[in-house]
């Protein structure tokens, strides 16, 4: 291998000539990533709220089932789940598109975590507030909707933001399926052009999406920490 000096690094890692005409593929990959991320975030948050509501409902059987579900999600790597859903289920004549299996797995796993976050948030709200709201004649649903959930939401926002960041990060794992999302697109261009610039560019794009989220999360966490 030829000797490399520091001045060669830009030519290797930031070679914009390589990227000429390739931006469209990379951007369409980013679009797919964002699509998976947004759909998964919305669905898993809604499902997580549902899970939390069932957990605080104190029905024994459902609680046990949901705890098992949570432990299952905690102990299963997302790669394994993706492979089982995408490559395993077709053996049972159940075939999901790569996009659908990505969303299904991410939502399934993260809804458990988000549910746990919501549950701890709801439990952190003082019980006297429920009693007060009920004595004002609010129904159980109204109490949840107007008193408990708005406050719980504020409490769990840092955890939730963290979880959403996790979801966006996990979309990168979907490269193992046949989806041309951001990382896959970068790999395709990188292999074709025999240059790592597309990989670096895709990392930069991920950072553009994720840095603001991480910074906000850290700020929220700090604020929560100082409140305590």
């Amino acid at each position: 291998m030829e000797e490399l000096s520091f001045s060669d690094l830009p030519r290797i890692f930031f070679n914009m000539d390589v990227m000429e005409g390739q931006w469209s593929l990379l951007l369409s990959g980013m679009w797919v990533t964002l699509e998976i991320a947004v759909i998964s975030i919305v669905l898993s948050t809604v499902l997580g709220l549902f899970v939390a509501l069932i957990r605080i409902g104190e029905d024994k059987l459902l609680n046990v089932l949901l705890i098992a579900y949570l432990e299952f999600c905690r102990a299963t790597p997302i790669v394994v789940a993706l492979i089982v859903v995408y490559f395993g289920l077709p053996f049972l004549n159940v075939t999901f598109s790569p996009f659908a299996s990505a969303v299904i797995v991410i939502v399934f796993v993260h809804a458990a975590y988000i549910g746990e976050a919501f549950r701890s948030g709801i439990l952190a709200i003082n019980n006297t507030q429920t009693e007060a709201a009920r004595s004002l004649g609010m129904t159980k649903f109204q109490t949840l909707r107007y008193v408990i959930i708005p406050q719980a939401f504020k409490l769990v926002l840092p955890t939730l933001a963290n979880q959403w960041t996790g979801i966006i990060k996990d979309t990168a794992i979907c490269t193992i399926l046949a989806i041309t999302e951001l990382l896959k697109a970068a790999q395709i261009i990188s292999t074709w052009k025999a240059n790592p610039t597309p990989l670096v560019m895709s990392t930069v794009m991920y950072l553009i999406i994720l840095l603001p989220l991480t910074l906000t999360t850290m700020k929220l966490e700090k604020r929560r920490g100082s409140k305590n």
Binding site: L4, F13, K169, A172, L207
Partner: peptide, 24 residues
């Protein structure tokens, strides 16, 4: 801390494995 909290694990693993060989 901020940088590595923001990079997806998959992206970093791919970057380290496929990009570093280009600098030997």
């Amino acid at each position: 801390v901020v940088l590595f909290r923001s990079i997806p694990a998959m992206v970093l693993v791919v970057l380290v494995y496929f990009a570093l060989p280009f600098v030997g």
